[in-house]
């Protein structure tokens, strides 16, 4: 159980990028009436930023 949780937490930044940052970006843009580029939807654009950012944080161990 604990080992499984540890492995799960190792990819938590990636999950955080998809699970929280992506919808936060999407809903913030919608609230501010900012249109996403390239005809993307708000959610797609949020995922385009959140997923790679989370992946970077998982890989590097830091968000910036």
């Amino acid at each position: 159980m604990q080992v499984a949780l540890r492995k799960f937490f190792a990819i938590m930044p990636f999950l955080f990028g998809i699970g929280f940052i992506a919808p936060l970006i999407a809903q913030s843009m919608a609230a501010l009436h900012v249109a996403p580029p390239w005809g993307l939807s708000h959610v797609s654009f949020g995922l385009l930023i959140g997923a790679p950012w989370g992946l970077y944080a998982t890989w590097r161990g830091r968000w910036l």
Partner: peptide, 14 residues
């Protein structure tokens, strides 16, 4: 995190 993700994808991320 479960709460964060569930709320965020339900439209309450902000």
């Amino acid at each position: 995190m479960t709460f964060f993700f569930a709320m965020a994808w339900s439209g309450y991320a902000i």
